[in-house]
Nucleic acid binder design. Structure first.
Lengths: 150, 150
DNA sequence: TTATGTGCAAAATGTTTGCTCCCCA
DNA sequence: TGGGGAGCAAACATTTTGCACATAA
């Protein structure tokens, strides 16, 4: 049942030190069940509604906002209007995204950034990096053959 | 005067093969005068209005859309609601952005990606990269001292 | 001349906010 | 039981669209 407090969630909640409401449990569970996926606020809303639980859209935005500030959720902006959210457990962190300009598919990748880049940023720019996002645009395997930007 | 067709613009227009209207000239000129800056549609609108030329917001969006498809303009999504646009002359291409989570400042950087990454993507993933964006979040020099994510 | 571009206003979309009532701690 | 949280609807901001008119080629 969707409000069961599993170990992963327990862990998160402890870390965050927040008031645990029915709605937050459902939202967290939905995000956990979809680790690695990129969900829009509306997709989260629909997933929850499909389990016969209805919660307000505003609650979703407010909860996600809080989760973002707690660093539990990551926000993505791919080209398509609505922002996408993804829970960050262990190291879904700092992965990269290959975005196909033809079919829109998003593929994961990693290890493309120079290893010393945290240090270099701090030394050269005085910038303390906490997090980064690398989005790579181009054509996926399937689309490559027929592809030509319009 | 803002609709003068300078060499840079001439070059762009030839490349694009489009119908050259008064509005497109102004928009292109505004973008050229602001190379390296990140302008929202509304900022472009205001800049043009300030020169005593009024053109429709819809025209700005439609023109930018076209310029995006022609590869003349880049679109950025930093955290703040409105998308930002920037003309791409020579190599404003593939630079990186350091985004301060405290004051919102955007600093440019480059050279943080492994040199062979185009080749690796193609070999390992069958993905043909045409373009990429690296956004790095953290704290700038000034904000670093007092910074602590809230 | 005529296909294409423009302006305007209206609509669509995504997100935020005010306020009242509710419920976790 | 008190203060933070939820729901609802309205507000907001940004972007898109339909249609009549204007204009570059």
């Amino acid at each position: 049942m969707s409000t069961e407090v599993n170990p992963i969630m327990n862990n998160l909640i402890e870390k965050m030190d927040i008031r645990l409401t029915y709605q937050r449990k459902i939202i967290l569970n939905t995000l956990i069940e979809n680790v690695g996926k990129h969900l829009s606020a509306n997709e989260i809303y629909t997933l929850i509604k499909d389990k016969e639980n209805i919660i307000g859209m505003a609650t979703i935005y407010r909860t996600i906002d809080m989760l973002l500030k707690k660093g539990v959720v990551i926000k993505h902006d791919f080209g398509d209007s609505a922002a996408k959210y993804e829970i960050e457990i262990e190291n879904t962190r700092n992965h990269h995204h290959l975005i196909c300009k033809k079919c829109g598919k998003v593929i994961e990748a990693s290890g493309l950034i120079k290893d010393d880049f945290y240090e270099r940023l701090l030394e050269e720019k005085g910038f303390q990096c906490t997090d980064y996002k690398l989005k790579i645009f181009g054509y996926c395997d399937k689309c490559r053959v027929s592809a030509k930007a319009n």
